[in-house]
Design a protein around this nucleic acid. Sequence first.
DNA 1: CGTTAATTTGAGACCATTCAATTTCGGTGG
DNA 2: CCACCGAAATTGAATGGTCTCAAATTAACG
Lengths: 258, 258
Amino acid sequence: MGDRQLIESHPLGLLARRWSKLASLTPDDCSALLELPFTVKGFGKEAYLVREGQQVNECALLLSGFAYRQKLLRNGSRQILSIHIPTEFVDLQNSVLGLADHSVQSLNGCEVAIIPIRALTELQQARAGIRMAMWIETLIDSSIFREWVVNVGRRDSKARIAHLLCELAIRLKKIGDGREWTFEFPLTQEQLADATGLTPVHTNRTLQALRKDGLIQLTARSLTILDWKGLQEVGDFDELYLHQETQASLGASGSGHS
Amino acid sequence: MGDRQLIESHPLGLLARRWSKLASLTPDDCSALLELPFTVKGFGKEAYLVREGQQVNECALLLSGFAYRQKLLRNGSRQILSIHIPTEFVDLQNSVLGLADHSVQSLNGCEVAIIPIRALTELQQARAGIRMAMWIETLIDSSIFREWVVNVGRRDSKARIAHLLCELAIRLKKIGDGREWTFEFPLTQEQLADATGLTPVHTNRTLQALRKDGLIQLTARSLTILDWKGLQEVGDFDELYLHQETQASLGASGSGHS
DNA sequence: CGTTAATTTGAGACCATTCAATTTCGGTGG
DNA sequence: CCACCGAAATTGAATGGTCTCAAATTAACG
């Protein structure tokens, strides 16, 4: 039943709450979710959770801190593929396919719940609601990658960075700490550059331009958006692709009730 | 049971065969798959199958011809997100989420099997094998998007185009028409440009460079790869991300037998 | 406070773009 | 079968956004 108490205190509680909205989980689904075996593990700054090419049979749910996925190129440069915030799975994809096609790294340090993929698979086999939640989670992930292709492929530096900031703002708001337009922003300019396909130097100049335009304030690991409308405009940002209001009820169906 | 005959002649037969390899479907799974309701539909050159922003409740399996997914930007430019060849679903993602976050377009004309997403969802609910096949299909899709982020984000024009050609070659080989290194290649240079985030003019010059290097031969809708090793090298291409040998047996498990 | 990481600045080179014009190609009708 | 047409491919030249390399400044942290 509705163990509010448990959901609050349990490490997987935030996941349960998020997925409830995503795929209308039943109370039973939630309890089952909370019974998943897991171990909590901490990672230091820039530590690898998974390396490209590695076999993977467990996946990590981010409890605190930030993490990102990335690929290294032969020439030494790297591309950051996505940035993850607490309550998100950073490694569902790698673990289901069994072989990591990209790396996962902690940003400044993070805490994760490690869950054996086998347990998650079994749970998903047994429960339609959880299955749908995982399914939708993956699809939204995929949609974000598509938008990133557009971002690095067709937008100039100003738009690229503005777009990334918009995306992070929306996503951070959801797990929000109250403040409306100010967020903890742990990315260095170099990391921001690797996420947008730019060089650190040019990223720096572009940030300055965004500041001069009065759109953002970015200092000391903290981002404040001064002009949301303007930033959205510059970044050609339309949040449709984040599918924030997606319910399993749409199209997909099979929403719960195994 | 193993209706070889049926699989050959049935429009969904190719899908059944492909998914069999992907997730070790049982004969029963295959039969069920072939019983999906569908209607065959043709699309002309550049015709839209789905438009961004549209509600979607059916999905399209490509039977013949090529199709691609794309997004238009406010400034009028566009980014092609993926290119699809026969036996692939072009619109699984949009239809499961219910709301299209990108458009799907025919290239020079194509034929598809339109399947109500409801039927596909029900089938997937009932059959673990098919569920796993769809799941893996989506994950590979996602992996390809990640690689495209890298491609447009971190490679120069020569590498970008070479990489795209490598990817298409590998994928085309799988549904191969016998010839080893020659493929029907229906993309115009403008479309190639939109897929790689370059301009048509520069795409043209880059193709010339690749030709001069003796890597490819590209004329009249036909691509021949003259030096696979070399092209791979130039394109920084590693096919791991295509997960060609992925079996459900890996990590994921839950491979069949509901 | 000293030390290292991160940010900022400058200047020159280069890759890719833009704009325009030309050539080639595939298809069509006379 | 050839002249014509529009689409696609190609070429040229100038511009510009981003990169590179290097150095200086500022912030973070023990």
